[in-house]
Each structure stands twice: as C-alpha cells, then as structure tokens.
Design a binder for these strands. Sequence first.
DNA 1: CTAAAAACTACCCTTATGGGTAGTACGTCA
DNA 2: TGACGTACTACCCATAAGGGTAGTTTTTAG
Lengths: 206, 206
Amino acid sequence: MKKIIIVEDNKDVQEAFQLLIETQTSNYEVVNAYGTCEDAINNLEVDLPDIVLMDIDLPGMNGIEGTRNIRQTLPRTDILIISVHENSQYVFDALCAGATGYITKNSNHTQLLRALDEVSAGGAPMSTQIAKLVVKSFRRESESPLTNRETDVLNLLAEGKSYMDIADQISVSKDTVKFHIKNIYLKLQVSNKIEAVTKAKSEGFI
Amino acid sequence: MKKIIIVEDNKDVQEAFQLLIETQTSNYEVVNAYGTCEDAINNLEVDLPDIVLMDIDLPGMNGIEGTRNIRQTLPRTDILIISVHENSQYVFDALCAGATGYITKNSNHTQLLRALDEVSAGGAPMSTQIAKLVVKSFRRESESPLTNRETDVLNLLAEGKSYMDIADQISVSKDTVKFHIKNIYLKLQVSNKIEAVTKAKSEGFI
DNA sequence: CTAAAAACTACCCTTATGGGTAGTACGTCA
DNA sequence: TGACGTACTACCCATAAGGGTAGTTTTTAG
C-alpha cells in the first residue's frame, strides 16, 4: 500500500482526488491532505509519503519550492505535479526541482490513476502536451550562420581539442583551423573559445 | 490518412510493423519501408511521409543522423525512434536531432499504436523508462568536489573571462587564479578550460 | 560561364594558457 | 597541537591562442 499526500489549496479538487484514489484504487491510500507546502513539510516525518500530489499555485511557498524542499527531506519520495499550467518555464522548473512527473489538471480520472501506477513503476508520467514541451527543449530550431566546416571545427573545439588536434583530425593545417575559428568568432561576435562554444550551444548551432 | 515510412534494416521487424499498422489501424498507411536512411532520404520528396518510424542501428547513416537529415528536408514530419537502446546518450542525441518520440523495441503492439496516435495528436510519446531518463536529465544531484572559491573561478571561466579578468573580479592576483584553475583541472581530470567547463556543467557543479 | 562563397595556406606578432615548483597564512578537526 | 584543507602569492618556461594581413583553390549559385 503506497502512501500518498495531497498538497492542494482548492478544497474541492483536494477532495475529488482523495475520493478518486480511495474508491478507485486498492494500492494507494491518502494519508493526509494539506492546503500549503508549509503544512505538508511540517508533517513529512510523520506521513512518510511514497508519493506527493503537488499543486503549483499555492498560498505561501509554491509547489516548485515545495518540491525542492520535500526532495531534500525525503529524496526517495516521488512528487507528481498536477497543475493548470502548460507553460514551459513551470514545467522545467518543476522537473529541475525534482518532480517525477507533471500532468495537467484537465487530465481525466483514468489518466491520473495511470500516472500513479507509472510513478510506482519507476516511470515519469507526463501528459502529452507536457512531454512535447520537454522534447522540444532538446531541439535546435534556429538556422546556423556557420558553414559546415566551421561547425565541424567548433564541435571539436567544444570537446576541448587544441588547434593542432583539430587540424590533425580534419586533415588541414593549423593555420586553416585558426582561420576558421577567427571566422567563427566574427560570426558569433565573441573573442575566445569558451564564449564561442557557450554561444553556439545556447543558439543550438552545435 | 497519415502516411508512414519505416526505416529499419531488419526485414522481420520491418514487416511486423507494416503488418501491424495495416491490419490494426485505419488512419495510417505504410507508403514505403527502407533498410537504410540513405534510401529513405532519396525518396522523401516522393513519399512525403507524415510520420517516420526510425531505427537507430542502421548500416551507413545511423538513425540519429538520419533524423537530423530528414528534419531538414521535411521539418513538419514527425520522427518516432524505435530502438533497442535505453542508453541516455542515444535518447538525448535522438531528441536533439529532432525526434518527436522515442520508444523501445520491446514495447507491445498497443503501445506502438498508441504512440502513433500520440504523435498525430501533437504529443511526444516516450516509453516509461525513457521519460524517466529525460526527466532525470533535468535534475542536479551530485556533490561538487570543488571548493566555493574554485566554483566561483570556474563560473567566471565559463563566462569566457581570462585569468586577468577573473583576478580583477574576485580581487586576487592572476597567479592565484591560475593556482585555483590548476586545482580545478586536477579535480575534474581535465587539462583545459573548455573541458573543465563542459565537465562541470554536465556534472552540475556549475 | 562567371562571380561569390567557402575552404584553404602562410607568416607575423602579442598575450593567454598550462604546467612545474615553492612558499605563507588561517581555521578546524582529530 | 599538529596535520589538513583552503586560500593565497610568486616565479619560470614552453606552447596555445588570438588578431592582422595576404594570398590560392575549389565549390556553388545566379
């Protein structure tokens, strides 16, 4: 039997979740429900939840700070964010804070219960649109101003290779490598390796 | 009717997918199946697929390069990776290359068909363990071996500052900065700025 | 076919970087 | 109290990196 606590300030939603879990499942029990993270955190040692269902918009400490906080105390507890926000910043912040999954409030009952099962199975449930956001964050969209050769050179530079290493690897002279790098700096408006690599990475050129 | 192409060198798997899609769905049709990315790419303009089912281990161009390539030609086509690898590097590389979803080959028929529906609905299907990997990548767990001072120095280094810049900024001598950097290299087992910054970032130290 | 764009080579010069070695000073934990 | 970790300073040396200039060849696009 997995112990669940709910952190949700809207009483109706809180009760709906509780009812749903208690009537529709036999593997989960809601040991407590709180309206604020502060309250939940104060009782963590007593509740020892396996799973926390966490809202984001909460009075006082928000759900993301709460997530970070709870994970420090109970690192093995899974925290499932249930939020109205599909905004990418919220999602990433929550995941960075240590949330296990992120589903939206408009998910239906079946989806919520499946999410609980997925969490228990070591998974990371995310609603379709959320998963899309996460995947999108891995993608590079923008057009690179760099030529293929320059991109090759920059990639090697990013690996920590020296001019000579790069020259050997792409079979050109050291001066040619230097030439390409000078052009890269010009295009990216930087003046050293680190800045070039950092900028190129953030822009998705490499 | 969504058009699908399959890129998979194993004939049995290829035919299994094809059969599955043709017999179990009415919204999808397999317009072609190829054993290599090269073949698939050569026929892209003719096939104009809505969805590409892509293997990773392929003779010649691998599935990740293939994904990058296809996305350049047909940016609106969804590419669903179907791979045996649950290795995080493969997953991230695939997502970075522009894959829409990543499911493992041991997924059952229902899961594969659901993945197709999710892709069509604008989602990003991932099998449970894959989603977990992705979520984990947002997390920072490890303890930094660096002292506070070293971390400060490394952060400035990561901004592209020179030894002198850093010295001025933290009000120590250039030699002291050098000293810290030497220790950073020692601790991170690297030998230049780029490697240090890259490693520290990937380990979450900065 | 021709004019760019891209890739390439070369040389000069200054500063930055990385590696080695040798110390001092301060706080803390055993 | 004495070893250890941290922070700091200093000097030497070789090589890497960055910036400037001046060209040739190859590819690509109009």
